[in-house]
Design a protein around this nucleic acid. Structure first.
Length: 520
RNA sequence: CGGGGAGUGGCGCAGCCUGGUAGCGCAUCUGUUUUGGGAACAGAGGGUCGCAGGUUCGAAUCCUGUCUCCCCGACCA
């Protein structure tokens, strides 16, 4: 991994640099960019307006893609009867250890000023707070599908889910998180697999085009499969510390869940047949991915497509009567920018009229990562100019000062849409270049793997190795070997070259190339 | 869930070992002087020290329990 910067003389907006302590830096960004805060409830966070605004943008863009594919939104209950889970053995085993369970429906006074669950109000059957909704949506599908004419059934829901995680991190792994889960049912394997891959490519497009995060889309190895799935596919992104983040998953579930829930249809010949189902999801974890892909030592940098405010205007108020004229001028600038269209949508501009010095507010917006920050003083107003700061390049590396430019107002407005598109592209290019520079190919032995990931190697990045795709016990052995080095198998990228060597683990002829990395 | 660390004004911390009426920096508010780039000075407000018990004349400080956060591990689409 290349150096984050050689700008040691610069006074950055954060106190922790990525290079010094990436985990501490991450937490500082979450708090300094005003994204989220601890709630006092284990593993649960309060998502603040700027953080939620980014999530809402992601939601909007993803929802458009989902609907464009003909998938319809629904909403299913948060509570799932415990017995639903016992129908699919692997599924229950996969989630049993991390489920929150509701057992009572009433509280009574404990006589000591507190409240306890009323023993008389114990539920006949405990309700599980959904960790994912395959089982309850499967029930609905079984009711909704009778004929081949009812297929495919394409549904999605935006919801919160709860998984009682042992170790949590803001956005990356929280006990409760927000996500979308698509659930579809099809006539046959081919149709279901096509849908699984459609969703996967939708995630790739959203990650790369909207979040500016380059990803590898590919199939997960057998040991990483979703409980109950026949195939699990993922998009994998490289964070700035070289670790991998699984940013979205798409599963081909075969007939496993259809069998468990009785999702059947009469085919064209009148034969009762099990459906083939899929499920796919992305979550608020994507916000964590944005932070660790685009954040820098001054805070977050939000790609324009998902920035709640793409351009922020800061009037240099003096707390004097002439402020009014300046504000009126800034409002004109705001209106002319808001009338533009950039990246396919109206430009989102904020005129930040809060009292306070422009410089202080500027650093606020730098930490939050607004793509473009404009400062306007009375002299700018007289000269018809603006002071413009691009968040993706805020430092003049020669002077160590903020890299303001001072275009004429009309020129800036005329070029604003292009500027936002350029920033979106620049963030993607920077991330893609960094990722590609940190993937090593051609490693042919476990000794080389161990050396590559030795403790004194600061940014080992990822390996792409050839393997024979072992299964069962042979795969378990590989996983154990990698685990000793804190490594995991990520996925087999669809676009990877064909194998032409031997398996790095077994020595047998290789059949494909798989990514190996440390992971979140 | 195992090992380690931590919870004291909004934020960051000191005080705790060796109990004796709570302190610093930043932020906030007021005033003055400034101000084209993260202002200076002066003054003011704000905390039952995570929570619950216990020991004691007296607890931020000692003891027990508990909750939450951070790091390592186990676990984890």
């Amino acid at each position: 991994m290349r150096d984050f910067s050689d700008m040691s003389a610069i006074r950055h907006a954060l106190s922790t640099k990525r290079e010094d302590d990436f985990a501490a830096w991450y937490q500082e960004v979450v708090s300094a960019a005003d994204l989220a805060e601890e709630s006092g409830v284990r593993g649960c966070m309060v998502i603040k307006p700027w953080g939620y605004g980014i999530w809402e943008r992601i939601q909007r863009l993803m929802d458009d893609r989902i609907k464009a594919a003909g998938v319809q939104n629904c909403y299913f209950p948060i509570f799932i009867p415990l017995s639903n889970f016992t129908r699919e053995a692997e599924h229950v085993e996969g989630f049993a250890k991390e489920m929150a369970v509701v057992t009572h429906h009433r509280l009574i006074a404990d006589g000591k000023g507190g409240l306890i669950p009323d023993p008389a109000a114990k539920l006949e059957e405990p309700l599980v707070v959904r960790p994912t909704s395959e089982t309850i949506i499967g029930d609905a599908m079984a009711r909704w599908i009778q004929s081949w004419r009812d297929l495919p059934l394409l549904t999605n829901q935006w919801a919160n889910v709860v998984r009682w995680e042992m170790r949590t991190r803001m956005f990356l792994r929280t006990s409760e998180f927000l996500w979308q889960e698509g659930h579809t049912a099809h006539e046959n394997r081919d149709d279901a697999r096509t849908e699984t891959l459609r969703a996967l490519e939708m995630y790739r497009a959203c990650a790369e085009d909207d979040l500016a995060i380059p990803v590898f889309a590919g199939e997960k190895p057998e040991n990483e499969r979703f409980p109950g799935a026949v195939e699990t596919w993922s998009i994998e992104a490289m964070m700035q510390d070289g670790k991998a983040l699984q940013a979205g998953t798409s599963h081909y579930l075969g007939t496993n869940f259809a069998h468990a829930a009785g999702i059947k249809y009469q085919d064209r010949e009148g034969t009762e047949t099990l459906c083939h189902t899929t499920s796919w999801g992305v979550s608020t974890r994507l916000v964590g991915g944005v932070i660790m892909t685009h954040g820098d030592d001054d805070g977050l940098r939000v790609p324009p497509k998902i920035a709640p405010h793409q351009i922020v205007i800061l009037p240099m108020l003096r707390d004097k009567p002439e402020d009014e004229r300046l504000l009126a001028y800034c409002e004109e600038v705001r209106a002319s920018l808001a009338a533009l269209s950039a990246l396919g949508e109206p430009v989102r501009v904020l005129l930040d009229k809060r009292p306070g010095k422009a410089a202080a507010k500027r650093w606020d917006w730098v930490r939050k990562g607004a793509p473009v920050i404009i400062e306007v003083g009375s002299r700018d107003m007289e000269g018809g100019k603006l002071a413009v700061l691009r968040r993706d390049a805020i430092w003049n590396l020669e002077t160590g000062k903020s890299a303001f430019s001072y275009p004429a107002r009309e020129d800036f407005v005329a070029g604003a849409a292009d500027l936002l598109a350029e920033i979106q592209q620049a963030l993607y290019a920077e991330a893609a270049e960094r990722r590609d520079a940190n993937i090593t190919r051609g490693v042919t032995s476990m000794d080389e793997v161990a050396a590559h990931f030795a403790d004194d190697v600061k940014y080992p990045g990822w390996l792409e190795v050839q393997w024979s795709k072992p299964t069962g016990a042979a795969l378990d052995k590989v996983v154990e070997q990698l685990k000793a080095l804190k490594l995991t198998l990520r996925n087999v990228p669809r676009e990877a070259d064909a194998a032409d060597g031997s398996c790095i683990f077994t020595g047998e002829p290789a059949v494909e190339r798989v990514l190996v990395a440390r992971a979140y």
